[in-house]
Amino acid sequence: MKIAVCIRQVPDTASSPKISEDGTELDLSNVQFTINPFDEYALEEALRIKDADKETHLVVVSVGDETIIPSIKKALALGVDEAIHLKPRNASRYFDPLSIASALADELRLHSFDLILFGKKGVDNDNAQTGTMVAQLLGIPCVPNCTSYKLSIPHITAFREVEGGTEIYEVSLPVIITQEKGDNELRYPSLKDLISARRKTVTSKVIELRENTIKVIGFDYPPIRAPGRIVGTGVEAIPELVRLLREDAKVL
């Protein structure tokens, strides 16, 4: 079984990016970067498959500049066998979903992965497109937003979270799954794992990204919400709160 997990880096969810003065760029200079949380969930699922079957060959694939290296190292330390780092010559700060998907598809096509995993979206640009697009470009099925899946080779049963319930899909391998947060807890690498990860292979390739399909023309902050007020303390404040909700806010 060969599994690829596509990972990338994003600003930590606790950070608040700033917009440049002219409104055309995001200033991410003081931002802490981590592996995209949903990619980490995908990675954890793949590691669990490898825990159960040691023959599993696990590869992470990532598009990005050198700043992605710590995330790749972390994945290797967690138990991934090898990494492929695609370095765009014409790097853009903005990750255009279709151009990134094309670059990934070109690389993934060279291998014969049974299962390709993505996070359901990057928590920075919130596009939620790349994994599904790669599946189209490779001509394989895709089940997005899965909390979990069960392998029974050559099939997979995937549990997709949707509004008000779960859809259960049955698909033949190879397949792309995009990962929603599931029930599994993430693991953390030990110092020893980090040291032994240094011996693992990272293949770097310089690539050319195709032209962006989306042009980012600017950024803005959302409107600021006017501060409200404390109605009172304890249960005594409840009648007044309910009156305000009915008469002022008109939501009851």
């Binding site: 969810t13 990016p17 995001l26 928590v123 640009n125 919130d126 980012v216 950024f219 902050y221 959302p222």
Partner: peptide, 11 residues
């Protein structure tokens, strides 16, 4: 984007 911390304008 960033779950609403920022509004992105695209063409």
């Amino acid at each position: 984007i960033f779950a609403g911390k920022i509004i992105q304008k695209v063409r």
